[in-house]
Design a protein around this nucleic acid. Sequence first.
DNA 1: CTGTTAGCGCCTTCAT
DNA 2: ATGAAGGCGCTAACAG
Lengths: 362, 362
Amino acid sequence: MNKKTTIYDIAKVLDITAASVSRALNNNPKISESTRKLVLETAAKMNYKQNKLALALRSGKSYNVGVIVPRIDSNFFASVIRGIEEELYAHKYNVIICQTHEDEKREFENINTLLNAQVDGILMSVSNFTSESDSSENDRIIKRVIEKNVPLIFFDRKKNIDGVSSVTINDYDVSYLATKHLIDQGCSRIAHFKGNQSLEIFANRLAGYKQALLDNGLAINESYVVQTRSSVEAGAQAVNALMKLKNPPDAIFSSSDFAALGAIQELKTEGLRIPEDFCVVGFGNEPFTDFMELPMSTVDQVPLEMGKMTAKVFLEHIDNTGNVKIEKKVVLTSELNIRQSSLRSNNQPLVEVVNNKKGVKI
Amino acid sequence: MNKKTTIYDIAKVLDITAASVSRALNNNPKISESTRKLVLETAAKMNYKQNKLALALRSGKSYNVGVIVPRIDSNFFASVIRGIEEELYAHKYNVIICQTHEDEKREFENINTLLNAQVDGILMSVSNFTSESDSSENDRIIKRVIEKNVPLIFFDRKKNIDGVSSVTINDYDVSYLATKHLIDQGCSRIAHFKGNQSLEIFANRLAGYKQALLDNGLAINESYVVQTRSSVEAGAQAVNALMKLKNPPDAIFSSSDFAALGAIQELKTEGLRIPEDFCVVGFGNEPFTDFMELPMSTVDQVPLEMGKMTAKVFLEHIDNTGNVKIEKKVVLTSELNIRQSSLRSNNQPLVEVVNNKKGVKI
DNA sequence: CTGTTAGCGCCTTCAT
DNA sequence: ATGAAGGCGCTAACAG
């Protein structure tokens, strides 16, 4: 009753051998119809369930895929995971989720845990450490993953490592577009909340921002570029410092919705009017951005698509039985959703206003 | 290089037996200091990682815990999972996540998958099917889980099954309070979006709502009670039907933030002013509720606490080596956050206004 | 068609 | 303190 039934239990009851039971259960042609039926029936009767652990040990395939994200309770990552899970579900893979809390040590531990758990692949979004220096240890373990031939796919926050596939969005282009949009609104002192520059996506966002300034005759003011974590508090703090400059900015292009929200909240307490006095564009299209008192312009990172694509790339790696190394760099097209936080009524936007309902995940 | 190193590989190198390697690795006292050191060193050198699969097969403990939720991309469930993961992390458990999409069949399949994966426990929130009839099959498999002695803990959306522990909030009390609050605002025709009544939490919310009406001299109008799914569309549809009644309601207490949002959006397009003409209280404290153009009153279900508590209860079950059956029913205290969608300025609220910043998970 | 054997990687008696 | 052996549950190769 308590103990789980194995194929041996079934074999004993039917007075056959476990191998035959296994064959019957796995639609192996080398078995008679009669015994197959018998086995199937008694298996059902005895409530038999295949032990995937034993199967995994034998085959070397656990049918578990590890997903490492900084946090799960952000709409972006939750949606990516949802996409991953949905795509993998059809292929009988389970998803094991690990959070790093943007902590380097946790990231390291998570990778180890997943390797120990014999996952068939690791899909990860790298953590945004504040310090950019001592990530050498994590780089080392990532290389180990590759050496072990465990498929590793980065999504969104990728590292640029040879032989590793990734799925990202067109960060540079959309950042260029967002900055251009702010310029079109009449902003000329545009600040940028940047992320960890060792992560390509944040470097690309910064680059797109800078190029847009240059292309439109605006000088790059390095004191307008502040590194912030993806949190409300960090955003509030950062904008606070910016507004104390002799020549404070009149707009922010933030690489995080959370930081942008913090900035907006802080600016309001300082009595600034948005978008009249100050424009803000965020990044991520978190649901709250569309329902805020003042809906926030932001970049939709198409997380569901990203998740599904990441899963697909993983499956390609798995199916790649040949000796050909595949390295796929997928770049998805994101969408700039312009809302009130950066839309001045007296200025006709040059960029088309996107009425984003479809992008909102609720 | 490619192949994973096992204890046999280490044994071969050191010209000892695998048993000794195992002993050394597991701090077994029956081994000399010298060989232990030697093993540890070469293990590190050879980049040995314990195969948890083999361990799990042997010990019968996978150190994986299955979590079944309707969806992951809702702040509530994501936060609960975060709580679960954080608590379990310290105890070396991994979390396998499954989504049901509120689909009965998926729920059934998920349970099976998790059992096959030999999880050490299942933490689940039952799906809110529209039909309440044919859930017999799922009830059957749930009983199977119990028979197999796999700890099963319900959180939030529980079923009332003997011997199964659960973690919920005080749904009845907070629903009573929310309805009372609407009455205090001058609403007298209060509608209710109810969920699947076979789930206790939704039954409790309905019961609390009804009792509050009765206690305040208001009749229960069954046409004001509508069953809705937890989606924006369902809420819009439901309120639409309600407003076509001869005597339409002047308030809604919704058991879902999403449905409440849909209702508000729909009411606005119909030209109704909120809260002047119509008051709304939701349930869930999704982040968007606080940042909406019109912040929505809602119930905070303390998801992080709920997740941690669920994990703790699971651990208690695991640690319960004795033969005593434990059945724990934890009821957490939730918070009613009153915001503008139900606060009429000309009415002094009898319920204290909660300025909810802390409850917001972003 | 069915039975026998072996092994996935690990740990744990039982000997020595 | 160490070695030998067996088994967790399953399947694939080899016999018959």
